[in-house]
Amino acid sequence: MDVRYLPLGDTGLTVEFGNEISPAINSRVTRLCDMLKTLNVNGIVETMPTYRSVSIYYDPSVLDLESLTALIDELLSTEIALNVTNPYVIEIPVWYSSESGPDLEFVASHNGKTVDEVIAIHSAPEYLIYMIGFTPGFPYLGGMDNSIATPRLDNPRVKIEAGSVGIAGSQTGIYSVDSPGGWRLIGKTPVKLFDMERENPVLLKSGNYLKFVPISKEEYFKIKEQADKGIYLCKMRERGV
């Protein structure tokens, strides 16, 4: 599918790479965002990567639409990847249990599995972070094994604590701030995905990968103490290394 330029009124443009959720399309999104960031184009206010498109917000008194689309045509046709970084894998420790994840046993029985099997299946993949949205710092992850897919709750919970790890259909994610929600909760991470005390409040970045690492209750509270003080660093490595 060809790239489509879709206007967003007088101040925005969406560059759409396709109409499906796939790692190949998402990597084109990440690549364009990286290149635009490096170029620091005068008149571009910000860029917003999503599953399959990049929304570019611009100041029309500085940059006209023809110049902007010409620049993007140029960037998309170039073979040279301007300062495009290799994706990394970030490890997110998770305390899986009925105490920290009230729906863990339901997810197991719904799929005819034991709790240990659910944990093993959920913590095996390196999940692609397709985009961040919904709430500040919330990752849309791709790559969950369908054998643990579970429908949402009929009645969403009024308050889910930040750090809760959940499943909704064939999606999995982590609540980044306290919010209402209907995802099936299976565990909790002590790591803060969104923390205004940090220089960069948002931990995760789209285009990279995330791996859940099971931890015990003791480890959870040990890491939580460090995370609350702002001195816990998640393990990170280049992907494929």
């Binding site: 967003l8 009124g9 101040t11 925005g12 969406t14 759409e16 109409n19 499906e20 959720i21 917003m48 999503t50 599953y51 399959r52 498109s53 990049v54 929304s55 917000y57 985009m131 949205g133 849309y140």
Partner: peptide, 10 residues
């Protein structure tokens, strides 16, 4: 649709 960016005024 597959979620995409929302501009002010959309």
């Amino acid at each position: 649709i597959i979620s995409d960016g929302i501009c002010v005024g959309a």
